[in-house]
């Protein structure tokens, strides 16, 4: 199987983010998307801890310990940036003002259900952060994840088995093996990572892939 690296996957997601979009990047792999947006596009990144217009990582020695993003990484403010408090930040998210959110996931179902905040292991403290607010309020949710879990089990399913973050909210899924749209009929193939066959990818997917 041919598998996209995290960097190649971030670049693939970045291609689908249009000029002028307001975008929230979730914790983990999605944070890498901003480094791959094609030249000539201005994308404005929102971070839920209170900044619109997240700029690049500061040079070593230039970090401002109070200026961080939702992943708690040091960031800078891009031209045109603003700072605000939590209630305003979540008005942007829940109120439908952010155009696109790119999130990681444990599971995605063929009806667009998203599970990315809790597992079935109750001894492990759940942590939701802003994920449910993004799922509820952002009109376009891109999921970026490995196609299968570490133990090899499918993460694209007919129904999620993990606790849900949002119902029917996912628009498109980008994995190391394929890109799929969530449609009223189920997962529809947009593209395979070059070198993979549909049969190979279908065998690692827990729901039918339409073409």
């Amino acid at each position: 199987m041919k598998s996209r690296t995290d960097s190649e996957l971030a670049a693939r997601v970045a291609r689908d983010i249009p000029d002028g979009a307001y975008v929230n990047l979730g914790i983990g792999k999605p944070t890498h998307v901003s480094a791959h947006v094609p030249d000539g596009r201005e994308v404005i990144y929102h971070s839920e801890n209170g900044i619109l217009g997240v700029g690049p990582t500061p040079a070593p020695g230039q970090e401002d310990c109070e200026l961080i993003d939702a992943s708690k990484r040091f960031v800078t403010a891009a031209p045109g940036a603003s700072y605000f408090e939590q209630a305003d930040s979540f008005a942007m998210m829940r109120g439908g003002h952010i155009d696109i959110a790119v999130l990681g996931a444990y599971q995605v179902a063929q009806n667009g259900d998203l599970a990315n905040w809790a597992t079935l292991d109750d001894s492990y403290p759940p942590a939701v952060g802003g994920a449910m607010d993004l799922a509820a309020g952002v009109p376009t949710i891109f999921v970026m994840m490995r196609h299968v879990s570490r133990d090899g089990s499918p993460k694209l399913l007919e129904r999620c088995t993990y606790p849900l973050t949002g119902l029917g909210v996912v628009s498109r899924v980008y994995t190391d093996l394929a890109v799929l749209d969530v449609t009223p009929e189920g997962f529809r193939l947009i593209e395979l990572t070059p070198g993979n066959s549909l049969d190979q990818v279908q065998a690692l997917t827990g729901a039918p892939i339409l073409t």
């Binding site: 939590q86 802003g130 509820a136």
Partner: peptide
């Protein structure tokens, strides 16, 4: 949820009895 946490505080501070949210 983080936005619900903030909004529950906002409601308390603003004298509201609660709110309906799509979150969750």
């Amino acid at each position: 949820p983080q936005g619900t946490l903030a909004e529950r505080m906002r409601a308390a501070g603003a004298g509201l009895g609660g709110f309906f949210t799509p979150t969750g």
